[in-house]
Amino acid sequence: MTLLEISDLKTHFPTQSGIVRAVDTIDLSIRERETFGLIGETGCGKTVLGLTLMRLLHPTTTVEGTIRYRGKNLLTISEAEMRLIRGEEIAMILQNPTTSLNPVMRVGEQIAEAIRLHQGLRRRAAKEKAVEMLDSVRIPAASRRANEYPHEFSGGMKQRAMIAMGLACDPALIIADEPTKGLDVTIKAQITELIKETAKEKAMLLITHDLGVARALCDRIALMYAGELVEYAATEEIFENPLHPYTRGFLGSLPGNGLVPIPGMSPSLIDLPDGCRFHPRCSHAKAVCRKKHPELIEVEAGHFVRCFDA
């Protein structure tokens, strides 16, 4: 069963120096209870995609296409309807927990306020539920911790609190933006484990740089480059049979594979190269790659690639 279906999605920011095409024609669908990984270099538009799904971008942003969630087009419903979906149906765990928690509000209260809003619980009951949530993400002495401020939490604990906040109203879909970034190895393993448990019952869009985490958690993985998807398939298929040079490069930069970074830099989203967006950095680039923009084609059942070579 498809939970979320994105088609032809474009998110453009008009700025003084030109239009930033942060998300440029994305099609993908997420099934119920599926964990879908979104991978890509920094600045390729992953966070913007997440925020677009939540409709959290500034009103001056142009968003086109459709986002169908359980039959509703999220881009056309009213703001009031959208607010009921945020947090309750789709929750987003923003990247960087240190700046994403309100520094002058107790952590418990930050979780409880969403519960009060969406589940109509009284203050006391919501507070108890918040403690429960903190406990469920394995924060020790949760009832005491709930009364503390974010700066009293360690990095890992802040991330747990963010996850608890996302889970608080039992949403059907969670968008988790780089939940393991900046954590040391043991903490990362714990958080990964925690996400794995959560992901069993929920659909999740997991945005990450970390291929190891993606492999451990995701059912399917998509690679994003300069605002568009360049390849997606089931996790094992991506790792066993990567077809796009960008995917291969990305896998090659894994510590286990010799840490060879992809040469060059991602293009400016204002001034994208003609033809294939990856061609300036691609060692297999041919004449056609410079001229024509490749389409995303299904090379095998469920394996999509945007490359003339595949």
């Binding site: 959290l56 947090g87 520094p103 809003l117």
Partner: peptide, 12 residues
Amino acid sequence: EDYIMTARAKGL
């Protein structure tokens, strides 16, 4: 700030 975005993401 990011925490304002978090608050929006909660549907407040």
